[in-house]
């Protein structure tokens, strides 16, 4: 058996939009171990922070792990600016968390909202391989942000694409798409919803009156990801759970989403400071400096200048 890769070399980068990008890196052992629903913690450089990112795909033959990242804070924006094919990340640990329980539902709806489209894919595929009827509901703000529609089409018996502005597919949010799917398919016995907390909450509210089991994947602030710091604690019914080792999947009908959303912004002040500083440094260094050589796959024009 191979020893753990220590290089975490990036082998592919793809930019879906100004804010969303894909990184695929080498880690044969992790690719072998990864299961749907698990996540990694990435520390992009020595001075970096550790950020949890759900595994969007894994390729056991190629020995790679795929992440889809949204550039929202300092770290993810810096990674967007700096990560190039051939370079290596400072540290990646995973797979972490309890894998999603892929039961034997007859019919399942996999809902992905925005960035949640990526991490719900391995689950859709797993259900498909399990022989379940899979209905995909994926939502984006507009048509330019759509990605992986073809990948989903390959594993879904039916695919509903939603856009907020109606520029593609159904006009509306994924909750509208989910309602549509449930109306058309009364036989649905499980829903998986991954996306921003407000979207997962919306999906859980759609299914609650129908009594359909709804699993969500939580992504709170973490440091170690091994249960050691307790920063990722979430309220599940009456209990406090650590998303890193007790999750990240939980029963959406039990999750206290208000609590989750409040805890997600508890470092807002520092995060804003960090981001402003980063953007200032970009402005200062951008004009004169030559951009690093981009890979042929990296056709995204610079957005940070």
């Amino acid at each position: 058996m191979d020893l753990p890769a220590t290089s975490y070399r990036i082998v592919r980068r793809e930019d879906f939009s100004d804010v969303t990008y894909l990184l695929e890196f080498e880690h044969p052992m992790m690719a072998r171990a990864a299961k749907p629903g698990q996540f990694v913690i990435v520390m992009p450089d020595e001075h970096g922070e550790r950020i949890p990112l759900t595994i969007a795909d894994y390729d056991r033959d190629k020995g790679t792990i795929t992440l889809v990242i949204q550039a929202v804070g300092k770290t993810t924006k810096a990674m967007q600016r700096d990560c190039r094919v051939g370079q290596s990340l400072h540290a990646v640990v995973g797979p972490m968390g309890i894998p999603s329980h892929i039961g034997k539902p007859k019919c399942v709806v996999c809902v992905g909202g925005g960035l949640g489209v990526a991490p719900v894919f391995p689950q859709a595929r797993a259900y498909h391989e399990q022989g379940a009827k899979v209905i995909g509901v994926i939502g984006f703000r507009n048509r330019d942000l759509i990605f992986w529609q073809d990948k989903f089409a390959g594993v879904c018996d039916e695919l509903i694409v939603c856009t907020d502005d109606g520029s593609a597919g159904v006009k509306g949010r994924v909750t509208d798409g989910l309602r549509q799917a449930l109306e058309r398919h009364p036989e649905v016995d499980e829903v998986v919803a991954i996306g921003p907390p407000v979207m997962m909450k919306g999906c859980a509210e759609v299914t609650r009156p129908l009594g359909i089991k709804t699993m969500v994947s939580l992504n709170p602030v973490m440091v170690d990801g091994t249960g050691m710091c307790g920063g990722c604690r979430v309220k599940i019914g009456e209990q406090v759970r650590f998303a890193c080792v007790d999750g990240p999947d939980f029963d959406g009908h039990q999750v206290d989403f208000e609590d989750l959303m409040a805890r997600l912004v508890r470092f807002r002040r520092a995060e804003t400071e960090s981001l402003e500083r980063f953007q200032e440094s970009c402005r200062l260094r951008a004009p004169a400096e030559e951009r690093p050589v981009a890979s042929p796959l990296d056709d995204r024009p610079g957005t940070d200048v």
Binding site: H47, G48, E49, R50, K74, T75, V223, D224, M228, C229, R266, F267, R269, A270, E271, E273, S274, R277
Partner: peptide, 19 residues
């Protein structure tokens, strides 16, 4: 952990926040 290992005490030179 934030302060010692992740060096949040040197924020923003290190990225890990601590408020």
């Amino acid at each position: 952990t934030r302060c010692n290992l992740m060096r949040a005490r040197d924020f923003p030179n290190y990225d890990t926040p601590l408020q």
